[in-house]
């Protein structure tokens, strides 16, 4: 189990050069697609989503291990974001059921999924631009009395709680090096800072499972390092992390477990080093990049562009 690994992790924010401590022994039996986990926090069964004729997601069975960092990888259009949307209640599947912490989530609306402690971030950051950074953070807090319309009119009911939340937010902002920006509009932050803000905001509610959709995309290398540290930190605080990432170096660096998707299916699972050697994974990426370094890619966009060109050119 992962317990000893978690307690062994340092409690202070790690220095960028810190070597992550990997959690091992997460699965039962062979490391194959859909394999069982020792202590799963999220279990999905037969989840399928189609858009017209396209099957975006078709996952027979997948389990996410508790207290570990799991990476979800796959080529563009593999269905990773769609799976995220389904698991968090932002989209409805055609079929399937899934449970979080033993509770069924099928048909549960997104806001209630979030309240259960399964918090997500978005591939395209959603900073609330015309709210201050502090207000963004405060919005993340759970169970606020003043968010009820009638109690909102009686400040004495919520003032104390508001102060506590503010202190907590300031603490998180300091850790994410955003404390100097707390009174600025979120719209004034840089792209990378917005990613940080979105992550910090998600942590305001003390989630059990954090789902990050490409937290590192578009973030400069210096910031990437500190983001990685933050993710490692989440694990050391006992949270479970599921994240989507295209940069294989990052995945290998911090992930304890890797799930590979292609064309909507889970095609491979395993330890980050082993999984790269899996022929199914190489197959999945084949034709785009045959090496392990998949890095950034604009291939989908480029592909669509050429498709439109073809459409127009078939006239001539």
């Amino acid at each position: 189990m992962s317990d000893n690994a978690v307690s062994a992790a340092p409690l202070e924010p790690p220095v960028p050069t810190q070597k992550p401590i990997k959690t091992t022994g997460l699965h039962i039996g062979e490391a194959e697609p859909g394999c069982r986990k020792v202590d799963p926090i999220l279990i999905a069964d037969g989840v399928r989503r189609t858009f017209g004729g396209l099957t975006a997601v078709d996952v027979d069975h997948v389990e996410v291990p508790r207290g570990a960092i799991t990476a979800l990888i796959g080529p563009n259009g593999a269905g990773k974001t769609t799976l995220f949307n389904l698991l968090t209640g932002f989209d409805k599947p055609d079929a399937g059921k899934w449970t979080f912490d033993g509770r069924s989530l099928a048909g549960v609306p997104a806001y209630r999924v979030a309240r259960m402690g399964q918090i997500r971030t978005f591939q395209l950051t959603k900073a609330l631009g015309l709210l201050t950074v502090m207000d963004n953070m405060l919005l993340g807090a759970k169970g606020q009395t003043g968010e009820n319309m009638f109690r909102a009119l009686m400040p004495f009911l919520w003032r104390n709680q508001e102060e506590e939340n503010r202190a907590k937010a300031l603490d998180l902002l300091t850790r994410f090096k955003l404390d100097t920006k707390k009174d600025d509009y979120a719209a004034s932050l840089s792209g990378g800072q917005r990613k940080l803000l979105e992550m910090a905001r998600a942590l305001m509610s003390d989630p059990t499972l954090v789902m990050l959709d490409e937290p590192m995309a578009g973030v400069n290398p210096a910031l990437t390092q500190s983001l990685l540290d933050h993710i490692l930190n989440l694990k050391s605080e006992g949270m479970t992390v599921l994240f989507v990432e295209h940069d294989m170096h990052m995945v290998r660096h911090i992930a304890d477990w890797v799930i590979v998707m292609a064309e909507g299916h889970v095609v491979a699972e395993g330890d980050p080093h082993e999984v790269m050697r899996n022929p199914a994974v190489i197959d999945a990426y084949l034709g785009q990049h045959h090496d392990e370094d998949l890095g950034e890619d604009q291939s989908a966009e480029a592909e669509n562009v050429s498709a439109i060109k073809e459409l127009l050119d078939d006239e001539r």
Partner: peptide
């Protein structure tokens, strides 16, 4: 066709030279 392409996705359409 170009009109429909722009309708579908303007930035993509302009990237493909429309």
């Amino acid at each position: 066709k170009a009109t429909r392409a722009v309708s579908d996705n303007p930035s993509l359409a302009s990237a493909s030279g429309i």
